[in-house]
Design a protein around this nucleic acid. Structure first.
Lengths: 173, 173
DNA sequence: GTGCAACTTCAAGCCGACTTGAGGTCAAGC
DNA sequence: GCTTGACCTCAAGTCGGCTTGAAGTTGCAC
């Protein structure tokens, strides 16, 4: 990709408020292939030139930001799409709807933070406990709690919240 | 599986300090298939009965706890194996080695928490900002930072740390 | 009017972390 | 000694989130 700092790419009468996929890729930090994939999932939309090439409005960056944030709080792309669809599409969605979304994300984030804090506390306890010794290590003992276990379960190390209820293989990435 | 509270499963001369795969699965919360998978990766080891069935020492739970914790801090199973292999195998590893591991995990956890806090702060800023409006939303503006972007990149929303350096597709799951 | 990068579609591939299924064997309680 | 559930192996499948490749078209600069 050209490193030209500000190549005013203006196709015809439009100013450059329409972005090519390459430009959008560059500005969003996603690969063009990912953007096409997002489009195939209905996360973003593009108009087409007469020749069939995609053109994006600047607002698409907004949707992408939303999607990436959604991923960050643990939603799948499909869930992100649902959330996006509920938000008013036109500029300046009424704040209220967004508040709801943001609030629910806040609590998700808080849960994730809390879980990390718990893990951290366990590790702290382990430091200097002659750790991974059978008797005293809370990390170890967290693994040996016969008797709960949903079927298949992946609750290990997260006694309280059980952040990943059903399908997500999640390992935290 | 039988719900018998304490079926003393003692094959011959051994006490029940040897666990079958089913018992280990139950106590660790992992599926038996997952345990076989872990073994195939070298994360855990088993002795075999004359008939070829796996028997685990109780210490295997320790290794599993370690692995799950490693996953939680964002390591792959392969990285977990490497870390495990560095730790002394016999009971009561000398504390020192473990301290190193635990300390490095602490900082990983701190990074993850910090990233979540950043996201949370952004969302807070968004609440009541007439959000997702083009001009003011930090969430939005975080998406439009043309000019960084490693190739392919997935840095969006994490300006500082860049938690996922190279290969992990991770979006936080 | 031509050259070339950037774009197009579609199908297939890849990664990690497992699960599922088929077909068969083991172990223990009666 | 038989029954039954737990176990065995191995290959293939699944899932999410993309990427890669092939083969062809567009659009813009010169």
């Amino acid at each position: 990709m050209t490193a030209t700092p500000d190549h005013g790419r203006a196709p015809g009468p439009h100013r450059n408020d329409l972005l090519t996929i390459g430009q959008l890729a560059h500005r969003s930090g996603l690969a063009a292939s990912a953007l096409r994939y997002y489009e195939s999932l209905g996360l973003i939309h593009a108009t087409r030139t007469s020749g069939g090439q995609r053109r994006y409005t600047r607002g698409t960056l907004r949707r992408i930001a939303f999607v990436r944030a959604a991923q960050r709080v643990g939603l799948s792309l499909d869930e992100a799409r649902v959330a996006l669809d509920r938000l008013p599409e036109r500029p300046a969605p009424s704040g209220n709807e967004w508040d709801l979304v943001a609030a629910s994300w806040q609590s998700r984030i808080d849960e994730q933070i809390a879980e990390l804090e718990r893990l951290k506390a366990k590790l702290s306890g382990c430091i200097g406990c002659g750790c991974l010794s059978l008797s005293r290590c809370s990390l170890y003992n967290a693994a040996d709690r016969a008797g709960e276990a949903g079927p298949g379960a992946r609750y290990l190390l997260t006694p309280g919240t059980d952040t990943a209820p059903a399908p997500a293989p999640d390992p935290g990435r």
